[in-house]
């Protein structure tokens, strides 16, 4: 399992390098805030711990993580959208 995960991580990193090195400088800030929102994928882990396991400690730690991750996800995607909306071509 661990080895499979390492293989997956390595391949995904290579894809990441390939895709992102072509992002133009103009979009570097939206790239950061957008990828930031994607790193909020921890929300998945937070949901599991907050809602799907037994034990009060786990649940409340999960809720705390869920709040943080949700801020990251919702705020991140929304603010990126707000920024990208502003990038316009000459009319």
């Amino acid at each position: 399992m661990l080895l499979d995960n390492i293989i997956l991580f390595t391949l995904a990193s290579l894809v990441g390098f390939e895709v992102i090195s072509k992002v133009p400088q103009t979009l570097h800030t939206p790239l950061m805030s957008g990828s930031n929102a994607i790193s909020g994928i921890t929300i998945v882990g937070a949901l599991i711990v907050a809602g799907q396991v037994h034990g009060a400690w786990a649940t409340w730690l999960g809720v705390a993580a869920l709040v943080f991750a949700t801020i990251n996800v919702v705020g991140g995607f929304m603010v990126t959208d707000r920024m990208l909306q502003m990038f316009k071509k000459k009319d």
């Binding site: 995960n5 991580f9 995904a12 990441g16 950061m32 990828s35 994607i38 790193s39 882990g45 599991i48």
Partner: peptide
């Protein structure tokens, strides 16, 4: 890696690379 979750590993790698 802790949760053995594909979505987390792939997106973590993407953002890490970015």
């Amino acid at each position: 890696f802790v949760l053995n979750n594909t979505a987390l590993i792939v997106s973590g790698a993407l953002v890490g690379a970015s």
